[in-house]
Design a protein around this nucleic acid. Sequence first.
DNA 1: ATTGACCTTGGAGTGTACTCAAAGCTTTAT
DNA 2: ATAAAGCTTTGAGTACACTCCAAGGTCAAT
Lengths: 138, 138
Amino acid sequence: MYKIGELANMLSVSTDTLRYYEKHNLISATTRSANGYRLYNDEVLQIMQFIIRAKGVGFSLNEINDLLSIKVDKASHSCAEVKSFTEDKLQQVNQKIAELSCFKDSLQLLVNACCGGDEEATNCSILSALENVDATNQ
Amino acid sequence: MYKIGELANMLSVSTDTLRYYEKHNLISATTRSANGYRLYNDEVLQIMQFIIRAKGVGFSLNEINDLLSIKVDKASHSCAEVKSFTEDKLQQVNQKIAELSCFKDSLQLLVNACCGGDEEATNCSILSALENVDATNQ
DNA sequence: ATTGACCTTGGAGTGTACTCAAAGCTTTAT
DNA sequence: ATAAAGCTTTGAGTACACTCCAAGGTCAAT
């Protein structure tokens, strides 16, 4: 079990951030010690890693909350709802991947163009590089 | 040339947003009409599309500004700097793609598990699905 | 000529996601 | 035993990215 400072350290976030996420129901302390200190187990560590990743790719804390609340439960009456919600998110993720692939290709073009050929710099900005990528990729 | 309302409409953003981006040097009006109205050409449209995409995958306006300012210029003395900056961004993008791929696989697992097999729901949350994906993908 | 939809600027207000400070209790180290 | 570091809560402050409002000028249609 980790104290809040230990967990914060492992994740490179502040203790304030962990308390903020608790307040907004993204995580909760596994238990409290006799003196009232928050104690966390590895599951919370894992959830936090998920949250940090999801934030990094542009999901808001609300959206992350939605993602975390996805439960495929045999007994659930709302299985169809869960499925359609998850499918929506899947499509969002696919869209993000497609956009990032465009970025990647254009950045790669820039890297290749720069300092590569001495004589010609065919792409002089990320926009002109994107133009090339857009043209060939779609 | 488009007036601000026309451009905003094409992009599904507000005119306030366009003025906000101008104030923060992400875009600028191509010219002004005699009466002081902002007028935009297709280049600005393209830049805005880039900004919207980049925002969608988690880049801040400051980072987007950095991306937009990448210029591979034969005459530039800082070609090496540009190259290394671009390579850094490329790595960031690759990282984001890798994380999204994890998300994608785990969401796909959830979609498949839900309402698919009548008897078994092997993955009951995005976290347990992610566990499976992490284990097999890395 | 006047109504309504559009544009201008400047400045205030909002939501999200932290971040810091105050006042006080607990633990660890010297 | 005392100081430093770490924990608690509550509440205020900050940065980012808009979003809205006020006061006024412009344009197209009736």
